[in-house]
Computed example of a mutant assay.
Amino acid sequence: MTPVVHVDRVVKRFGAVEAVRTVSFDLMGGETIALVGHNGAGKTTLMKLIIGLIRPTSGQLRLLGEDPAAGQFAGRKRLGYLPENVSFNAALTGRETLAFYARLKRESAATVGPLLERVGLEQAADRRVGTYSKGMRQRLGLAQALLGSPRVLLLDEPTTGLDPALRQSFYDIVEDLRRGGSCVLLSSHALTELEERAGRVIIMNRGLKVADGSVQDLRGIAELPTRIRLRTREQGIEAAQQWFAGTPCHAINGHTLEISVAQDRKIEVLRRASSVGAPVVDIDVAPPNLDDLYAHFLQDREGASC
C-alpha cells in the first residue's frame, strides 16, 4: 500500500537551530496518528513541512505522491489543516467565512451548511466571528479543515477550548474520517485523550523521532511495570501485605494496597489476588499510560545523549 505521507530523512534548519533532525516515517490511509512532544520538539514544523508551507533543508517529503512545497493544487485540495491558533476575519459571519474557504478549495457552497451543523455552529452561522468564543472559533476552524472530505487531515491542538461534549463530538468526526480511509495526524498535549483514540503514536524530542508505534508496542519496548491496586476488607491492609509477602507493594491508605509488577508477572499476581481466602474485595489494573510512556522515552533519550 502506498503511503499518503512519506517522510524520508528530513532535516529542517532555521539558522543555527535544527528544528527537525533526520526524521523518517510513513503515514497510511485509515490511520489516526498522535504526534506528541514538548514545546519546541518539532511537531508544528513537521506539519508545516507536510503542508508545504516550508521546505526541508534536506531529505525528501511526499504528500499523496506530490512534493507539497511545489504547490500543486490537486494535492492541497485533498488536504485539511487546523492550526493551533485559528484566526478569521472578525467582520464576517461563520457562514461567510466557510463559504470563502469553500471557494478557495473549489468546493460547492452547498457543503457549507451541513459542515456548520456537523461542528455544532448551525445556530451561530449568521453571527459575526468577532462575537464567537474561543471554542466556537475552534469549531469553525475544524469545519474549514473538513472541507472537501480530505484524505490527509492535520490537526494541531484541535480540542483547545472545546468542552467535554464537543471534544467527544470532534473525535467522532475524526473516527468517521478514518473509517472512510482518511489519514488523521493529531498533535496535542492532551495525552489521555490521544491514548484512547490514536492507533499509533510518534514521540518527538528536540527534533528527533524517539518512538513510533501503537501504545501496546511502546509498552513492550519500554517494559514499564503495571500498577495493580487492591482494595482490602476493612482493617485488612496488614492481612493483604502478608498475603503478598515477597512481592514489592505499599499501602496507599488504610484499605488499598498497590503492587508494581512486570508484564510477565501480572497474571500471577491477579490469580493470587482473586484466589479463595484472599483479603481483597476489588482489583484495579493500570498498565503504563501514554503519559508514562512519553516520560520514559524522553528520559531514555536524555540519558543516551549525556
Rank of each mutant, 00 (worst) to 15 (best):
M1P: 15
G15M: 05
A16R: 15
T22W: 07
V23Y: 01
V23C: 03
D26Y: 11
L27K: 03
L27N: 09
L35D: 05
L35V: 11
V36E: 00
G37M: 12
G37L: 13
N39P: 10
A41S: 14
T45P: 12
T45H: 10
T45W: 07
T45N: 12
L46V: 13
L46S: 04
L46Q: 04
L49K: 01
G52T: 15
T57A: 06
L61N: 03
R62A: 13
L64T: 09
L64N: 08
L64R: 06
L64D: 05
E66A: 14
G71K: 08
A74R: 09
G75M: 12
R76Y: 13
L79T: 09
G80F: 08
G80L: 13
V86C: 01
L92A: 05
E96F: 05
F100Q: 07
F100P: 09
Y101R: 01
Y101W: 04
A102N: 01
K105L: 03
K105M: 06
E107V: 15
P114Y: 04
L115Y: 14
R118E: 13
L121Q: 06
E122D: 14
Q123E: 08
A124Y: 06
A124V: 09
S133R: 03
L146I: 13
P150Y: 05
L153D: 05
L155I: 15
L155S: 10
E157D: 04
G161S: 03
G161I: 08
D163I: 09
R167H: 12
S169L: 08
V174N: 00
E175L: 13
R178L: 06
S182F: 05
C183L: 08
V184W: 00
L185Q: 02
A190C: 10
T192M: 07
E195Q: 14
E195T: 07
E195Y: 03
R197P: 11
A198D: 05
A198Y: 03
N205P: 07
R206W: 09
L208N: 12
A211G: 08
D217C: 03
R219V: 15
I221S: 04
A222W: 10
P225H: 00
I228G: 06
L230Y: 00
G236K: 01
I237L: 15
E238I: 02
A240Q: 02
Q241T: 10
A245K: 06
A245T: 12
P248T: 08
P248I: 03
N253E: 08
G254V: 06
H255L: 05
V261H: 00
I267H: 05
E268F: 06
E268L: 07
V269E: 10
L270H: 00
A273P: 01
S274G: 15
S275I: 09
G277A: 10
P279T: 04
V280W: 01
D282S: 14
I283V: 13
D284L: 06
D284F: 06
D284M: 07
L290R: 02
L290K: 01
D291V: 11
D291W: 02
D291P: 01
D300R: 10
R301L: 07
R301S: 11
C306V: 12
